[in-house]
């Protein structure tokens, strides 16, 4: 598992170069990619459904990205978009269409449903965390005004 986590981090960092992430942000992107894959692998190792693992992974990655974004004063997407690549079901989407073309409809349907579940779970993970972050920031500001 350690090898896979380190490879996911390396993959995220090198894809960061393709998407023109620069300087120290690149290292943080790589760390976030590895972190997300670690959470996902931890869930999978404990026999949790893959899409639930992806939900937790994307939630943890969004928390990391929001914190890093506030520290470095840049949009959270910089740390999130590329770091998500090792877990988003891009490969499964590819095999979905490939199976359709081969005529293996049952395999295609399974892949298609899995793609929907997995990317849906990742999107929900991001949305839940970022809405709570906004509420949290607003609350903190209001508390600051009162105190």
């Amino acid at each position: 598992m350690l090898v896979k986590v380190i490879s996911a981090a390396a993959a995220a960092a090198s894809f960061g170069i393709l998407f023109n992430v620069q300087g120290g942000n690149l290292i943080l992107t790589g760390i976030n990619g590895g972190l997300g894959y670690f959470v996902f692998a931890l869930c999978t190792a404990n026999n949790v459904e893959s899409y639930i693992g992806m939900f937790f992974a994307s939630a943890v990655m969004t928390i990391f990205a929001e914190i890093a974004a506030r520290r470095r004063k840049v949009p959270a997407t910089i740390f999130l978009a590329v770091a998500l690549i090792p877990i988003v079901p891009g490969g499964r989407m590819f095999s979905f269409v490939l199976h359709l073309l081969e005529g293996s409809n049952q395999l295609a349907v399974a892949d298609g449903i899995q793609t929907l579940l997995e990317s849906g779970a990742i999107a929900i993970g991001i949305i839940v965390v970022s809405s709570f972050t906004q509420v949290f920031v607003r609350l903190k500001r209001r508390m600051g005004e009162i105190l």
């Binding site: 891009g90 490969g91 989407m93």
Partner: peptide, 23 residues
């Protein structure tokens, strides 16, 4: 083949699509 194609597959675009729709 899959590893090489990871630089082109739109997994991220699809996730962002669902994110936009949910937002």
């Amino acid at each position: 083949t899959l590893s090489a194609l990871m630089q082109l597959v739109p997994g991220l675009i699809f996730t962002n699509a669902l994110r936009d729709a949910a937002a």
